[in-house]
Amino acid sequence: MNCNQIRERLLDLATGVDPGTPEVEKHVASCAACAGKLEELRQTMALLDEWKAPEPSPYFNTRLGARLREEEARPHAAWLNWLRRPALAVSLAAVLVAGVLVAGNKSYFVEIEAMNTTPPAPSVPVQPGTAVGDLQALERNNDLYADFDMLDELQVQDDVTANP
């Protein structure tokens, strides 16, 4: 038996799980380093034993029972637990954001399409000076503009007459 073999069993020897063999005892008796380490470890184990934990309080069962009843009273709470999982929560948030973006884009395209194809409702007042307002004014005054063209032509003929 050598120091390395003792070292491998040191924990169990110190805690008493390994009662040791005559060979171990022989080595420890002849090796001051191993004997010292074993003794120190035994003392450390004994020291750690001093740290006691408290007993559960007398209300432990009462509180647990109340929490369990609360759990039972909330049958839909279980699926909410899924939301508490970070990976799922992040995925769900990503899906929601993507959904909102898609819905937003879709309504934007619908608006553009509607603007291109359908004329504005007559009841909707159109501001003068805008493209739509100008087009509407041109349409409304089509006859008048046609007359202006005729007048222009007449003026040219007059000029010809005046300056042949």
């Binding site: 934990a53 408290p54 007993e55 559960p56 309080s57 432990f60 509180r63 647990l64 929490r67």
Partner: peptide
Amino acid sequence: MVSFMYRMCHNPAVAEELAQ
């Protein structure tokens, strides 16, 4: 469970909560 939690968090009340 209470003793394990107590040694992890050092607080008996929190240890009980965690054990529950």
